[in-house]
């Protein structure tokens, strides 16, 4: 896992700015709803995986409960709008605050848990929230779900067309990436990686474990909730199986892992690989075989390339570089002879 934030910023400005400009222009060229929709889905999962990576990758707490925060974001924005007419722009913020508080609490109580115990605790937490979403019918209407009224208008983040959601999704991804970059360049980023690598050594150097882990968990949860609110206004219908279900948690983690956990851009890259692949497989093979291949892909990736796609790219790049260097030295030695 490369950790050169200064260098990373330069690269992200060099590559990122033209790329961002191109991405902003996409809806003017792509008007097909299917492709634009696929693009929006990629953006959302990229944002989710990037948000997961703050606690899962930088801090090393492999969470299988992030669907809970996604659900909190989706339900908070939806319910505030349906019950009180509060615009989902504010609902999104409220959901982020609520999920952030929840994330802080979970971060604090799972502090001492390591390895599989942490994974199981987050899994159980996710399931508790899912059970609540299914059974607290007075609030969530359970499995029947909640429908957002069509034509709520731009003021309420409910657009008739698809293109506005492209921009919102782009903004969401930029936000999560921006926060990740900012964290990695701040003391918190260094502390989190130090804690992940060796907690005892980090503590002996003066790193405050509680503060750092709680902050990482809260930030990750809040950003995940933002994506949840975005999802609710985009699809305009939410139910527990599309928001709080365990599979959602798995998918978030899976995308981050495929892309490369602990890196800034890996998780977003993972969404670019996994989401279209998933759609293609589902369309051509059907749900069962597609998920079969998903499972297989997860196994192969974690066994063969635990640093993900970005790890593979880095390896390829350094191979090319050393190859070029070798060629250069042979040429030079030939020149001497």
């Amino acid at each position: 896992m490369g950790n050169e934030p200064a260098n990373e910023l330069r690269v992200s400005l060099l590559v990122g700015l033209p790329l961002a400009a191109a991405l902003v222009a996409v809806p003017t060229f792509v008007s097909d709803v299917f492709w634009l929709g696929l693009g929006i889905t990629v953006l959302m999962w990229a944002a989710l995986a990037t948000a997961w990576n703050i606690s899962g990758g930088l801090a090393g707490g492999l969470s299988l409960g992030h669907a809970a925060y996604f659900g909190v974001g989706a339900y908070t924005a939806t319910l505030l709008f349906l019950r009180f007419g509060i615009s989902p722009y504010f609902g999104l913020l409220a959901g982020a605050v609520l999920a952030g508080a929840l994330g802080a609490a979970i971060g604090a109580i799972t502090l001492r848990l390591r390895g599989p115990f942490f994974v199981l605790a987050t899994l159980a937490f996710g399931i508790v929230v899912h059970i609540a979403a299914v059974n607290w019918r007075d609030l969530t209407r359970g499995a029947a779900g909640l429908l957002l009224p069509f034509g709520g208008g731009a003021r309420n983040m409910l657009f008739a067309g698809v293109a506005p959601y492209w921009y919102l999704g782009l903004g969401l991804l930029a936000l999560t990436l921006g926060v990740t970059l900012a964290i990695r360049r701040s003391p918190l980023g260094y502390y989190l990686v130090a804690l992940r690598e060796d907690e005892d050594a980090a503590r002996a150097l003066g790193v405050k474990v509680v503060r750092c882990k709680v902050a990482a968990s809260a930030i990750s949860a809040a950003l995940t909730a933002c994506a949840g609110a975005f999802y609710a206004t985009y699809i305009q219908y939410i139910d527990p199986s599309s928001t709080t279900q365990f599979e959602i948690s798995v998918q978030i983690a899976l995308i981050a892992i495929v892309g490369g956990i602990g890196t800034t851009f890996g998780p977003a890259l993972g969404a670019l690989v996994v989401v279209p692949l998933g759609e293609i497989l589902r369309a051509s093979l059907g749900g069962g075989p597609a998920l079969m291949l998903y499972g297989l892909m997860l196994i192969v990736i974690v066994l063969a390339a635990p640093n993900g796609v970005i790890g593979l790219l880095q390896r390829l790049l350094s191979m090319m570089r050393s190859g070029a260097r070798r060629r250069a030295t042979t040429r030079r030695s030939r020149g001497h002879a």
Binding site: G115, P116, V119, L254, I257, Y294, G295, L296
Partner: peptide, 11 residues
């Protein structure tokens, strides 16, 4: 360690 068996489960 965690995600290999999770992948097996999904598969």
């Amino acid at each position: 360690v965690v995600f290999a068996t999770l992948g097996l489960s999904i598969f």
